[in-house]
């Protein structure tokens, strides 16, 4: 967990309006303006600007090393931008943590750690505090955790060690953990805005498992805004409302389908070693899959 202290970067200053509070459903879930980030002198992201409206499902796709995970960490407030600004529901990311859930890469979880699935999911309710933070283990929290596990098809696994889960099961358990932070609807039944961020969530899941996972994410669409990053080109699908391609810069795609021009622009460096025909075939395959499911 290295702390990143970015060097100054000659980016434009952000021009977002002042912070708004409290969170209101009409406020965009994510506002990113002229965002730049550099590791030392190595620029990773340059002049990234985009907005995600509440309820959208944005897929951020790009090659390895293109800055996707860095962008996600900036959205989470774990890194300080070299330039520009990030707002989550109109506030700085650190001030919006109670409205954010995070599913990190599968490999960040120590699968050999002695803990049960239920214990791991309960951790999702963690709140920061001067004493190191904590989460509830009372009956209400356990009920919520068990309900989430049931929703994700893991109800019988609550007492199992996390090390005994398959990759797909573990990924779903991590999603349940992220959703523990999701506030309960108001007394009027209105959902409180919530942003779910996922980092390569299907990297360790087989193709069938991927669709099951996306089917689950689809059920959250009404109550959550979802931003997912992946290097998987086959992700073009009707699940997403928007797709953005990231490789140092960000290009929003005009629809929820990948375009050959956008692919060439983003994966251009890979295209030298990967014939464009193969890239296009993968694109066509993914679009056919999307059409088949749509």
């Amino acid at each position: 967990m290295p702390a990143s202290t970015p060097h100054a970067h000659p980016c434009q200053q952000a021009t977002l309006p002042p912070e708004q509070a409290p969170v209101h459903p009409s406020v965009p879930a994510v506002q990113v303006q002229d965002l730049c980030y550099a590791y030392g002198t190595e620029a990773v992201l340059h002049n990234i600007t985009f907005t995600v409206q509440a309820g959208d499902f944005l897929a951020i796709i790009g090659p390895n090393g293109g800055g996707k995970s860095t962008l996600l960490r900036l959205l989470l407030g774990l890194l300080t931008p070299s330039g520009g600004e990030v707002r989550i529901f109109g506030k700085a990311p650190a001030a919006s943590r109670s409205h954010m859930g995070f599913v990190p890469q599968f490999t960040t979880l120590r699968a050999d750690f002695p803990a049960t699935v239920l214990e791991m999911v309960l951790m999702g309710g963690a709140q920061a505090s001067p004493l190191g933070g904590g989460w509830g283990t009372h009956a209400k929290a356990r009920q919520k955790a068990l309900r989430l596990l049931e929703t994700l098809g893991l109800s019988g696994l609550a007492g199992r060690p996390i090390g005994s889960l398959s990759g797909g099961q573990c990924q779903r358990a991590m999603a349940a953990r992220a959703l523990m932070a999701k506030p309960e609807p108001t007394q009027e039944g209105e959902d409180i805005p919530f942003l779910l961020l996922l980092d390569e969530p299907t990297a360790s899941i087989d193709p069938e498992g991927k669709h099951c996972f996306y089917d689950f994410l689809e059920t959250l669409r009404g109550s959550c805004t979802i931003v997912l990053v992946s290097h998987d080109l086959s992700l073009a699908s009707p699940y997403f409302t928007n797709i953005a391609l990231v490789n140092r810069t960000l290009t929003m795609q005009p629809s929820n389908q990948l375009s050959p021009a956008g692919l060439m622009e983003t994966f251009g460096t890979h295209a030298h070693s990967c014939p464009i025909g193969a890239l296009q075939r993968r694109l066509e395959d993914s679009q056919n899959q999307g059409a088949g499911r749509g």
């Binding site: 967990m1 943590r97 960040t108 120590r110 999702g124 920061a128």
Partner: peptide, 28 residues
Amino acid sequence: LFFRQGLWAISIDKDFAQARGLPVRFLY
């Protein structure tokens, strides 16, 4: 007793603990 959940959290998943705002560096 005071830091049990924080120490537990960084032991199982530092990235997630940091994302929830836990003082991961201090706990480490």
